[in-house]
Amino acid sequence: MARVICVHGIGQQFSGERDQHLRWCAAIADGLTRAGVSAAGSALAPADVSCVFYGDLFRPPGRVLAAQDPPWDASDVDDAGDDAYEAELLFALWEEAARTDSAVVPPQARTLARTPRSVQMALDALSRSRFFAGLAMRGLIADLKQVRGYLCDQDTYARVQQRVAAAVTDRTQVVIGHSLGSVVAYEALAAHPEWSVRSLLTLGSPLGIRNLVYDRLRLPTGGAPGDWPGPVTDWTNLADAGDVVALVKDLRPLFGDRVEGQLVHNGSRAHDATRYLSTDGAGRAVARGCGLL
């Protein structure tokens, strides 16, 4: 019966509900403190926060926590015909990384044919970026496949959405979505205008990426990408200038001027959910939604 529902992003297949809850609760409390909400710990108790977990859907069966991702390489990135989604997303990330990081060599026109060789060049370029520092190639490829799995596979989409719907109750006031979780949250709210949720908080969101994300959003019959997300009256979107996943920082041109957009600074971990949550902007959004301000 949580007041705040949290939806994580990609790369969480080796995490779990309790792990997510521990980290997100602490960061939410810090954000409330930054926002000037007194006695943040008692204003929003751990029991008031619930983390929807779906990372296990992307964890191959029989794997243990210490295992590594499959030894994928450039040949495993789909890059042809109707299956070119992973390569298209990879190149969008490459272009954005090059724009924000001088250490990343930008893609040239000759690489845009999306060949196996150009996919390898994109992976090599991203491996040198600050944003993807420490992430092995197989990890990046796994993340691409998770995004494709949710956006392009109806069964995966349905299973994730079922978990969100099971978590939301009449007591839920705020939904928070990080990274791919912001897409999940937006689609869930759009599909359930009957919910009593008042506020949506999106963090490091890829919702504004045309063709690859925005134009693939699934709305109820008669709806279209860009529609206001169902019952919410308040939508705050936070983006770090160096967050490659949040390629489009300002969502207002696509979703309307009612979206309150803020640029934040998360340091070397631009896409980190807890760094987003600990900002005063996140704290104010949660506090407004919960009636604490």
Rank of each mutant, 00 (worst) to 15 (best):
Q173F: 04
R198F: 06
A166W: 08
R114F: 04
S129M: 07
I209M: 14
T115D: 09
S199W: 01
D153H: 09
Y85S: 07
G204T: 05
V213G: 02
V175L: 15
R198T: 12
S102I: 11
L203N: 04
S182R: 11
A165W: 14
E187I: 01
R117E: 13
A84N: 09
A167W: 06
Y157F: 15
R110I: 00
A185S: 15
Q120W: 10
Q120F: 06
N211I: 01
Q162G: 08
D155L: 12
A87L: 06
E95Y: 03
L201P: 09
G149F: 01
L112R: 14
Y150D: 01
Y85T: 05
L90V: 03
R128S: 15
T169P: 06
A166S: 13
S205T: 12
Q154D: 14
V175Q: 12
D153G: 04
T111D: 13
A84S: 15
S205M: 09
V183W: 08
V175I: 14
Y157V: 06
D170W: 04
R130Q: 10
S127W: 02
A103P: 08
R171E: 14
L89M: 09
V164T: 03
G139L: 03
T172A: 07
A125H: 11
F132K: 01
Y85E: 10
T169R: 01
V104P: 01
H178P: 09
Q154E: 14
L203R: 00
A109S: 05
S205K: 06
C152H: 12
Y157K: 12
N211W: 05
D153F: 03
R163H: 05
L207H: 04
G204C: 03
L89Y: 07
M121S: 14
V213D: 00
E187K: 03
R159L: 07
I176V: 15
R110P: 00
L135C: 12
A166L: 10
R128N: 14
L112I: 02
D153R: 12
L200N: 08
V164H: 08
R148S: 15
Q120T: 05
L144I: 01
S205A: 10
L180H: 10
T172N: 08
A167G: 11
V184M: 13
D143Y: 07
A92M: 09
A166T: 09
R198C: 02
V147S: 09
Q173L: 11
R117T: 04
R99G: 06
V104G: 04
A133I: 00
A92P: 08
Q173N: 11
S102R: 13
V174N: 01
L144S: 04
L144G: 06
G181P: 05
H178D: 14
Q154G: 13
T111F: 09
Q146V: 11
R128Q: 15
P116K: 11
T111L: 11
P106V: 11
L200F: 12
L126V: 08
H192F: 10
F131P: 09
T172R: 02
T202H: 00
L135I: 14
V105A: 15
Y85P: 09
A109H: 02
A185N: 06
P106K: 07
L123Q: 01
M137I: 13
G139P: 03
T115W: 06
L201I: 07
S205N: 03
D170L: 05
E187N: 02
T169A: 07
L144A: 01
I141L: 07
A109C: 06
A113Y: 04
R210E: 05
G181M: 07
A133L: 04
R198I: 02
E88M: 03
V183Y: 05
L144F: 03
Q161S: 06
V184C: 11
L180R: 13
